Amino acid sequence: MSAAWLALLKQHRSIAVIRALELAVGIEMANATAAGGMRLIEITWNSDRPHHLIQQIQNDLPDCVIGAGTLRSTDEVQQAIEAGAQFLFSPHTDFSMIEAAVRREIPIVAGALTPTEIMRASQAGAACVKVFPIQAVGGASYIRSLQEPLGEIPLIPTGGVTIDNAAEFIRAGAIAVGLAGQLFPKQAIETGDWSIVEARSKQLVENLRSV
Rank of each mutant, 00 (worst) to 15 (best):
G26C: 10
S210V: 12
R49C: 06
P107L: 11
R19F: 12
Q86W: 11
L183I: 05
F132E: 00
L183N: 02
S73I: 02
T114S: 15
K10D: 14
E206A: 15
M97E: 01
G160H: 01
A85M: 06
I189T: 06
Q56M: 07
R13V: 02
R49A: 09
A140Y: 05
V17L: 15
I18C: 10
N165M: 05
W45R: 09
P62S: 13
E148V: 10
A140S: 15
I153F: 03
G125L: 06
R39S: 12
Q56A: 14
E198H: 05
A85P: 04
T33I: 15
V161I: 13
I41E: 00
T33D: 05
E190F: 04
G160C: 02
M29I: 14
A172S: 03
L88Y: 14
D63T: 13
G111S: 07
R103I: 07
V65W: 10
D94H: 08
A20H: 07
A32P: 12
G111R: 02
D193N: 15
S210Q: 13
I118Q: 00
C64Y: 03
S96R: 13
G173Y: 03
I18R: 00
A174C: 15
T114N: 07
E28W: 03
E117F: 01
A35M: 12
G159Q: 08
W5A: 08
I66Q: 04
A140K: 13
H52W: 07
G160R: 01
V205Y: 02
R104F: 15
P157A: 15
G139S: 12
V211F: 14
A101N: 10
F132W: 03
R209I: 11
T116E: 10
S47P: 04
A136K: 06
L179N: 02
G36F: 07
C128V: 09
S47N: 07
I156T: 02
D164P: 07
A124Q: 08
V197Y: 02
A112C: 11
L61G: 07
G159W: 03
A20W: 04
A172R: 00
I156E: 02
N59Y: 08
R120W: 08
E152Y: 07
A199N: 12
D164L: 11
R39P: 06
I170S: 00
V131D: 03
C64W: 01
V197Q: 01
P185I: 11
A30M: 09
P62H: 05
H51W: 11
I153G: 00
Q55K: 14
I57T: 06
E148R: 13
P107Q: 09
H92A: 08
